[in-house]
């Protein structure tokens, strides 16, 4: 768009509270202005057993043969997952899981949201993955809830207050603010991305009651009844969604395009020069690229493109935040196909 003012006008002309509809795209993504909220099964990326204080605990169960109506040797193993959580995506800036059973932020990550493929299934065939249907994370996990909350309410840890009860949420200009009660108090929790510091988010926890809400210390002022805080984490794991065999038999532009769409690259990188969460690939290959933290331009050759896929944090394109893209571990033919496709896009093919 040639006229930036026009672009700005269009942006604000859109109703802020109306999100984008869910499509067959198994890699849905919100944005900072239009966060996406999904009530869904969500993965458990290794939360501590003690975290699940208010969940039920399942068990192995004898295998059953529906043909004979009898148990047979072997056992069904329970799988990992959060049964009743709300996934929220602000685009690559921040995603988090709000657990409606524990009434807590279970974990947070950056650089993507959920791969719904195992659950929603192939757009054409429509089948979920039989026993492996929990949606999978895309991005860099940087925060997992500790069993004991760092938040104190009138000197008591939030997690020591009994009867967590999820009430619902309001969309405040599209951003969810969760309501719950615990220990006889009502709370409102609102989480937002913090774009100033990598691998972090901000939250505000407030209550209509006259209580002190503090972080890392039991002592606090009762008159505030509000806590605003930024939580900064470290990279705890990289996730690239459900492992799919794209059945790539040769390196080609067509296969590169298939991967580009299938892996969700297109959610952030345009191929026509338009703005996105990440740099456009139009004209990228062969150009000189400005990089964050250095005055020197970098030549966008094959090595640069490969490095940007394998280790995106090595060089961050100027004007874009770090950690918005997770590293992608692929097969050699897949890397080669993506490079061929990105080269073809640069040439305008």
């Amino acid at each position: 768009m040639k006229n930036p003012a026009h672009a700005l006008f269009l942006l604000f002309a859109l109703p802020i509270s109306a999100g984008e509809p869910i499509t067959y795209d198994n890699l849905p993504l919100g944005s900072e202005s239009k966060p996406l909220l999904l009530s869904t099964y969500m993965p458990d990326p290794g939360l501590d057993e003690a975290y699940f204080a208010h969940h039920g605990k399942s068990a192995k169960s004898p295998k059953y043969n529906p043909g004979t109506g009898k148990d047979i040797p072997g056992e069904y193993d329970p799988i990992k997952g959060l049964p009743a959580s709300l996934g929220v995506s602000f685009g690559p800036a921040l995603s988090y899981a709000f657990d409606t059973v524990e009434c807590r932020i279970a974990y947070a990550w950056q650089g993507g949201f959920l791969d719904m493929y195992p659950y929603w299934g192939d757009p054409v065939r429509g089948s979920r993955q039989s026993y492996d249907y929990v949606p999978q994370l895309v991005g860099i996990l940087f925060h997992k809830a500790n069993p004991m909350s760092e938040i104190f309410v009138d000197g008591k840890r939030l997690t020591d207050l009994d009867h967590p009860k999820f009430v619902g949420y309001n969309l405040e200009n599209g951003t969810p603010a969760f309501l719950f009660s615990r220990g006889g108090h009502e709370f409102k929790l609102k989480v937002t991305p913090n774009t100033k510091t990598p691998l972090s988010f901000s939250f505000t926890l407030s209550s209509p009651d006259k209580i002190a809400i503090t972080y890392d210390t039991p002592n606090g002022d009762r008159t505030t009844n509000t806590l605003t805080r930024t939580v900064t984490g470290t990279a705890l794991g990289n996730f690239q969604g459900f492992p799919r065999d794209m059945k790539i038999k040769e390196a080609s532009v067509a296969n590169g395009r298939k991967l580009f769409d299938g892996l969700g690259c297109s959610a952030c990188h345009s191929v026509d020069g338009s703005l996105g969460h990440g740099p456009s690939l139009a004209g990228l290959y062969g150009s000189k690229r400005p990089i964050e933290g250095t005055q020197e331009l970098v030549h966008a050759d094959e090595a640069y493109i490969l490095e940007s896929i394998k280790n995106p944090g090595a060089k961050t394109a100027k004007g874009f935040p770090p950690n918005y893209m997770p590293p992608y571990i692929l097969k050699d033919l897949e890397y080669q196909s993506l490079v061929l496709y990105i080269k073809s896009v640069a040439k305008g093919q």
């Binding site: 458990d44 039920g56 059953y64 069904y76 799988i79 959060l82 039989s130």
Partner: peptide, 10 residues
């Protein structure tokens, strides 16, 4: 039975 249960249930 064509699906699982989670380790932790609601």
């Amino acid at each position: 039975h064509n699906g699982s249960v989670f380790e932790h249930t609601k």
